[in-house]
């Protein structure tokens, strides 16, 4: 395999004396889906925030297509081709659904007219087209999660960071979202996904990284990871699925 899209190399993130993430290393190859799992408070969102530029790593480095991006601000990374969603969804409530996506589209299509057309295409793809003119605040949770993905996609990213986009959806909606994620993978977008629901991660991931209390306790194919006694112990009582 050539240079991966994303390489996380010994990343440490400390808040005060507390290590939220300690020495985490993994790679996301082109066109791969890598799952990031772990119990609550394992540091999944923290590592997302480090990769997407919201936190600078205390130690270690993050490489995107071979170049060091540690400590770059989020907007620079968005321009380079890293799109992310937020676990706590962040729509612009006062803007319409279409305008929400247009803001992201402007990244690659600086003219408003082009951005509008691009945003329509994205909404069409993610199935939010009929809601385009509604205020983002009027969307229900599944709609908001879909809007999160739409906005990240509108950046035309090469790497997509998805933070709990399935959690909280009913089974039908969850399946639709999973279908969408696989479609994106088939288009060549590399995906790093955080998810609570094991079933989802195990079915779609090529690789799985397991975190526990900020430590990386396992890395490998889903079938191998589920058999790992360390992982089983970390999840004992935590996850029955």
């Amino acid at each position: 395999m050539t240079e991966p899209i994303l390489r996380v190399d010994g990343v440490v993130k400390a808040f005060g004396g507390l290590h939220a993430v300690n020495d985490v290393s993994f790679e996301v190859g082109k066109g791969m889906i890598v799952g990031l799992i772990g119990p609550n408070g394992a540091g999944k969102t923290t590592i997302f925030n480090v990769i997407s530029g919201y936190y600078a790593p205390t130690r270690g480095r993050v490489f995107f297509k071979g170049s060091d991006i540690s400590g770059l601000p989020p907007y620079a990374l968005a321009k380079m081709g890293i799109g992310r969603t937020f676990q706590v969804v962040k729509p612009f409530p006062g803007l319409s659904v279409l305008e929400n996506v247009m803001v992201a589209s402007l990244c690659r299509h600086p003219r408003k007219h082009d951005a509008r057309r691009h945003a329509w295409d994205i909404l069409e793809f993610t199935g939010l087209g009929p809601r385009a003119h509604d205020a983002a605040a009027s969307l229900t949770l599944p709609g908001r999660k879909r809007l999160e993905i739409s906005k990240a996609l509108a950046l035309e990213p090469q790497l997509l960071l998805l933070d709990e986009v399935v959690a909280g959806l009913n089974p039908t909606e969850a399946d639709r979202t999973i279908e969408l994620i696989l479609k994106l993978r088939d288009q060549g977008i590399s995906i790093l996904i955080v998810e609570h629901i094991m079933r989802v991660i195990m079915n779609i991931s090529d690789q799985v990284v397991v975190l526990n209390f900020g430590q990386q306790i396992a890395l490998g194919k889903p079938v191998e990871v589920v058999k790992d006694p360390v992982v089983i112990e970390a999840y004992l009582g935590e996850e029955a699925a």
Binding site: Y75, A78, K90, F92, G94, K151, A152, L155
Partner: peptide
Amino acid sequence: KAIREDEAGAMALGLN
């Protein structure tokens, strides 16, 4: 307007 609504969220979309 995007920045007015949510500054942190706007950063993830490439806005400084």
